[in-house]
Amino acid sequence: MSDSQHRSLAEERDSMKALLMNLKVELGWVLFKCSTYYVSSEKKTWQASRDDCRQRGADLIIINSEEEQSFANQFKKYMWIGLTDLQTEGTWRWVDGTPLNTSYWGTKEPNGDSEENCGDIKSFNAKNSWNDEKCATSLNWICEKKVCP
């Protein structure tokens, strides 16, 4: 390994240590892979939940893998995720605007047509735990903040 590679790795290590120290200060956040997550203890509407996440420098969770789906289910809470079809009925998108490609909808979900436009984790004991719900319903929620470049 060259000196420049060694310096680069040392700088990256120091940067990650500083980041982890900052995360330890944020009580209530859980580190998993390249994100940190906050699970609420109170209940709010989908939009109010998203607003809370944004005030924390995060957004509602975007589930990108089966591993992350299992991680979210482990909290065993009926909670909002960052999924909605409010913009175009039947076209589910994540809060960052990306289309839904891989999904974990529960049996016969989504089923709410124009009445239920926000996504949540409902039957967390199953891999396919997602449900569509009326956005005005008050639920717990889960925020996600990326911590890796």
Rank of each mutant, 00 (worst) to 15 (best):
S65W: 03
R93W: 07
K134A: 09
V95W: 07
V147E: 09
G90R: 08
G97S: 03
I121L: 10
L27F: 07
D59N: 14
S8A: 10
A48W: 02
D59T: 11
S4T: 15
K33T: 12
T84W: 03
I61A: 13
T98N: 10
I63D: 10
S70R: 14
P99N: 10
S138L: 05
F75W: 00
E115M: 08
R56C: 06
E66N: 12
Y104Q: 03
T88E: 14
A10N: 06
I81D: 01
E144N: 08
G28C: 02
W105Y: 00
M16S: 14
G82M: 05
A10D: 06
P149R: 09
D52S: 13
S4V: 14
D120Q: 15
V39P: 09
V30W: 02
G97W: 03
R54T: 12
Q87G: 07
T107W: 04
E67L: 08
G28S: 02
G82D: 01
Y78Q: 05
C135A: 03
I121V: 13
S114Y: 11
P149T: 12
E66W: 07
A18W: 11
W80I: 01
K24H: 04
M16G: 07
F124W: 15
Y38Q: 06
R93Y: 08
N64H: 11
R93F: 07
G90Q: 11
E42H: 15
E116P: 03
T36F: 07
G90I: 10
T137M: 09
N131Q: 15
A126Q: 15
S103N: 11
E68Q: 09
E115P: 02
Q47P: 09
V25H: 00
Q55W: 08
K134T: 09
N22D: 14
N125Q: 14
M1A: 12
G119P: 11
R56V: 06
D120M: 13
K44E: 12
K17S: 12
K146L: 15
R50L: 12
M79Q: 01
L60K: 12
S138K: 13
K122D: 09
L100Q: 02
K77L: 01
W141T: 03
D132P: 04
T107E: 05
G28L: 04
E115C: 07
G106Q: 05
C53K: 06
C118G: 07
A48H: 04
Y38L: 13
C148S: 14
L83I: 10
S8Y: 04
V95G: 11
P110W: 00
T137H: 06
L83G: 10
V30E: 05
N73H: 01
N101Y: 12
A18S: 15
